[in-house]
Lab assay of single mutants.
Amino acid sequence: TEKQERAIEYIRRLGYSEEEARRILKKANGNPDLAKEIARRIG
């Protein structure tokens, strides 16, 4: 989804690889607090 793409872009800007960014997002899917934090940061 567009939100996922924005989140991946944001995480990659922090210096993670695409693969790492996707792994972090997968974790965020099972972790509402982390997901909220990422969403808050990407606006």
Results as ranks from 00 to 15, higher is better:
28 A>S: 05
23 R>S: 13
16 Y>T: 01
35 A>G: 02
29 N>Q: 10
5 E>Y: 08
4 Q>S: 10
11 I>W: 02
41 R>M: 13
15 G>Q: 02
18 E>G: 06
13 R>M: 14
13 R>G: 15
23 R>G: 12
19 E>V: 12
8 I>Q: 03
13 R>F: 13
23 R>C: 07
11 I>E: 00
41 R>W: 10
3 K>C: 09
35 A>Y: 03
19 E>L: 11
41 R>F: 09
35 A>F: 03
40 R>A: 11
10 Y>K: 02
4 Q>L: 12
39 A>V: 05
19 E>H: 11
13 R>P: 00
3 K>S: 14
22 R>I: 10
7 A>Y: 04
38 I>G: 01
20 E>S: 09
34 L>W: 07
27 K>D: 12
19 E>T: 11
40 R>G: 08
8 I>H: 03
32 P>N: 03
4 Q>W: 08
15 G>S: 02
1 T>R: 10
17 S>M: 04
42 I>V: 12
13 R>K: 14
38 I>L: 11
4 Q>E: 11
25 L>E: 00
9 E>T: 08
11 I>L: 05
8 I>D: 02
14 L>K: 03
3 K>A: 15
38 I>Y: 07
1 T>N: 12
27 K>G: 08
14 L>V: 03
31 N>V: 05
43 G>N: 15
35 A>V: 03
8 I>L: 12
6 R>Q: 15
5 E>D: 11
9 E>L: 11
28 A>E: 01
36 K>W: 07
41 R>N: 14
21 A>Y: 01
28 A>D: 00
24 I>Y: 04
32 P>H: 05
31 N>A: 05
39 A>R: 02
4 Q>K: 07
2 E>M: 10
27 K>A: 14
5 E>F: 08
24 I>H: 01
28 A>W: 03
15 G>T: 00
34 L>Y: 07
31 N>D: 15
27 K>P: 01
42 I>T: 13
38 I>T: 04
39 A>Y: 01
16 Y>N: 03
26 K>A: 13
4 Q>Y: 07
40 R>I: 14
14 L>P: 00
22 R>T: 07
21 A>L: 04
30 G>Y: 12
15 G>D: 01
42 I>N: 15
10 Y>M: 06
37 E>S: 09
13 R>D: 13
3 K>D: 15
18 E>R: 07
9 E>I: 10
1 T>K: 12
23 R>M: 14
35 A>P: 01
5 E>K: 11
17 S>F: 02
41 R>G: 14
14 L>F: 06
18 E>P: 06
3 K>L: 15
40 R>W: 09
32 P>A: 13
9 E>N: 09
27 K>Y: 14
8 I>M: 07
20 E>Y: 08
40 R>P: 02
10 Y>S: 06
23 R>A: 14
11 I>M: 09
11 I>F: 04
9 E>R: 11
3 K>E: 15
11 I>S: 00
29 N>I: 04
7 A>W: 04
7 A>H: 03
2 E>W: 06
37 E>D: 09
41 R>S: 13
7 A>Q: 02
40 R>K: 13
33 D>H: 08
11 I>Y: 02
42 I>Q: 15
11 I>A: 02
8 I>T: 03
1 T>V: 12
22 R>L: 10
27 K>F: 14
25 L>K: 00
13 R>Y: 11
12 R>F: 04
30 G>Q: 05
22 R>N: 08
39 A>P: 02
14 L>M: 11
26 K>I: 12
29 N>Y: 07
26 K>E: 13
34 L>G: 03
38 I>D: 03
41 R>H: 12
16 Y>Q: 02
7 A>C: 07
41 R>V: 12
6 R>S: 12
12 R>N: 04
31 N>S: 06
27 K>T: 13
4 Q>I: 14
26 K>V: 11
22 R>V: 08
20 E>W: 09
6 R>K: 14
20 E>N: 07
9 E>M: 10
12 R>P: 00
15 G>R: 01
34 L>C: 06
15 G>Y: 01
38 I>E: 05
32 P>I: 11
11 I>N: 00
33 D>G: 07
14 L>A: 03
34 L>M: 08
22 R>P: 00
15 G>L: 01
12 R>A: 05
19 E>P: 08
33 D>I: 08
21 A>T: 05
26 K>F: 10
22 R>F: 10
13 R>V: 07
5 E>G: 06
6 R>H: 12
27 K>M: 15
10 Y>Q: 06
16 Y>W: 09
37 E>P: 00
4 Q>N: 08
34 L>H: 06
17 S>N: 07
2 E>P: 13
